[in-house]
Structures are given as C-alpha cells and as structure tokens.
Amino acid sequence: MKMLNMPVDVIATFNVQGKIRPNYIRLEDEEHTLQTFKIENIVFSREEKYAGMPAIHFCCNIIRNGCAQLIHIKYHVKTHQWVLVREG
C-alpha cells in the first residue's frame, strides 16, 4: 500500500530572517534501515494553510544511488513535524 504522508526526521537550519532550510533527511529503505541523505538543493518552497494548519512545503533534490531524486516534504508550523509528502 502506498504510504500516507509519513513523519520523517530532518535536520534543518533556521536563519536570522526566519527562513527555514532542510539540510538532511532520514528515510527508510525497502529493508527498513534508516539512511540519511543530504538535501542538495531546494527547487521551490511555498507556504500553505490547508484546513487552517500552517505548513511550509519544500520540493528538493537528494542524491540516492548516484542519481538525483526529487522529493516533497512539508514542515508543520504548529506541531513542528516534518512529513514526506511524496517521492519523485
């Protein structure tokens, strides 16, 4: 079954202007082992407020098995949780 929005571990930096940048993300692979990936670049980010819940949506690239892969992650401002929206 396709997993729903999954909570994930993220290392992020918060700059003095309040800008958030995710730097590393930890994902589970098929064998259920955790792997840390560096976030190479952020393609775009946008603020959302669906259902009255503020969140920041990031579309970014990680390098997995030697190729760049696009992932979408969201930071929930109220609960301070990061979730993986989709890969690719």
């Binding site: 959302e48 669906y50 259902a51 969140a55 929206v85």
Partner: peptide, 8 residues
C-alpha cells in the same frame, strides 16, 4: 481537506 492535504 484534512484527509487529502494533511494526511495525504
């Protein structure tokens, strides 16, 4: 909306 956008 919650189920679509937040829970996916």
């Amino acid at each position: 909306v919650y189920r679509l956008r937040i829970r996916g």
